[in-house]
Amino acid sequence: MSYNQPGPYGGQPQQPGPYGQPGPYGQQPPQAPQPGYGYPQQPVQPQPGYGYPQQAPQGVPPQGQPPYGQQPPYGQASYGVPQPPAPDGGTKKVGIIIGAVAVVAAIAVGAYFVIGSGGGSGSDIADDGPHKLTTPGTVLTEYKKSDSDSDTMTKDDLKDAESWGVKDAKDVSAGYEVKDESNPLGGKMISFGGVYGTIDDPEKAVDGFFAFMKKDSKDENVTFEGNPKEYKPSSLEGAILKCQGAKIDNSDASSSGMAKEMKVTYCVWGDHSTLGFVMPMEYSDIAAGKATDPAAAAEMTAKFRKEVRVKA
């Protein structure tokens, strides 16, 4: 069959249809059924997401072969009703999620500047000697580091840290992710930031961290829920750990099929050497407006701390 014949939207085709009838466009449908296709031959209507074909097909394509190498839009048994190509919506939603939770992480970074401004007592937390924070390539078996190490404070900020309770302060931050190649919303991640040096009162540092985050969130469409709650998971040793929930206004992106509010849970630990912020999340939960269970987040944070905190 020649593909140089006129298209079906102009003049009549020069060759008859495959069953002795005129071509399929503007004429009666073929008298014999078309094997492999679920519908009679009719003029091809543009499907959403496909647009108009670049060339009009002549006659009927051979059985089992889509026209011109494209997927068959006629409803073969293996494809069902034709659907437009997926617009990669899962990846787009993940981008929205990461962008929104980055706001919470940014607020957390700012909280480092007020360590020492809160209340509480760290006298019951044993000092196990100097430690520092690291960002290994893999944590908790399956999480891979997705961001390179990056300082979140300037040199002047770190120097000023001595005035608010952390001596010889240094900071680290990283993101960790588990990807699901078949379903972007099936992935999960951990946002991590921390500072290490010498901290005289760990609980005072943790309380100061939470107090600043709540204060600094007013202009960022983030609302912190309730008050920080202390957790004592079995894997936590020599530190105080508190968690709190937050809601992120997502009304601008709700048309993408996501919840109008995204909820996150974050935890903060403090000891005599380190203070760390951990925000674990599963993309499917965040997209549906569901937060990580605080007790589960606390357990994960305690285990995470063991893997990033090493002797100095």
Score class of each variant (00 low, 15 high):
Gln54Gly: 05
Tyr143Ile: 11
Ala174Gly: 10
Ser191Met: 06
Glu282Trp: 08
Ala312Val: 02
Tyr112His: 06
Val94Leu: 08
Ser273Cys: 04
Asp252Trp: 00
Pro43Arg: 00
Asp151Tyr: 05
Gly165Met: 04
Ala211Leu: 11
Met213Ile: 05
Ile96Gln: 13
Lys290Cys: 03
Ser217Ala: 15
Phe210Asp: 07
Tyr176Pro: 09
Val94Ala: 09
Gly187Leu: 00
Asp285Val: 01
Thr154Ala: 06
Gln58Phe: 12
Asp285Gly: 12
Ser148Leu: 12
Ala291Thr: 08
Glu177Val: 11
Pro16Gln: 10
Gly193Tyr: 00
Gly194Trp: 01
Met281Arg: 07
Ser148Tyr: 10
Ala205Cys: 05
His272Phe: 07
Gly175Gln: 10
Tyr112Leu: 07
Leu140Cys: 09
Ser121Asp: 15
Thr265Ile: 01
Gln65Ala: 11
Thr134Ile: 12
Tyr266Ser: 08
Lys145Trp: 10
Val109Ala: 15
Leu275Trp: 00
Tyr266Met: 05
Ser146Pro: 04
Gln21Lys: 12
Asp271Arg: 10
Asp156Trp: 03
Gln70His: 12
Pro8Asn: 07
Gly10Trp: 02
Glu237Arg: 15
Pro67Phe: 10
Gln41Ala: 14
Pro66Thr: 13
Ser163Met: 07
His272Asp: 11
Lys247Gln: 15
Ser191Glu: 04
Ala312Gln: 15
Ser235Leu: 03
Pro130Tyr: 07
Pro87Cys: 06
Ala102Phe: 11
Gly75Ser: 07
Gly122Tyr: 01
Pro184Phe: 04
Lys260Pro: 14
Pro85Asp: 08
Gly175Ile: 04
Ala174Phe: 02
Ala291Gln: 05
Tyr19Ser: 08
Asp271Met: 07
Ala111Glu: 01
Tyr25Cys: 08
Gln47Glu: 10
Lys170Pro: 05
Gly20Phe: 10
Gln14Thr: 13
Glu237Phe: 13
Asp271His: 05
Val206Arg: 06
Lys229Pro: 05
Pro294Cys: 03
Ile96Glu: 14
Pro13Arg: 11
Gly36Arg: 00
Pro40His: 05
Gln28Ile: 14
Asp157Ala: 09
Gly238Ala: 09
Asp157His: 13
Arg305Trp: 01
Pro84Asn: 13
Asp157Pro: 06
Val101Ala: 00
Gly165His: 06
Gly118Val: 01
Asp157Met: 08
Asn221Val: 08
Pro67Trp: 06
Pro280Arg: 01
Asn227Glu: 15
Val172Leu: 12
Lys132Asn: 04
Lys167Tyr: 08
Glu162Leu: 04
Lys188Cys: 09
Ala239Trp: 05
Ala105Met: 09
Glu261Met: 04
Pro6Asn: 04
Gly51Ile: 08
Gln41Phe: 11
Lys263Trp: 02
Pro184Gln: 05
Pro233Arg: 04
Val109Pro: 01
Gly99Met: 05
Lys188Ala: 13
Glu225Asn: 14
Ser150Trp: 03
Glu225Gln: 14
Gly276Thr: 05
Pro33Met: 03
Asp156Tyr: 03
Ser163Ala: 14
Tyr39Leu: 11
Gly120Ala: 13
Gly122Pro: 02
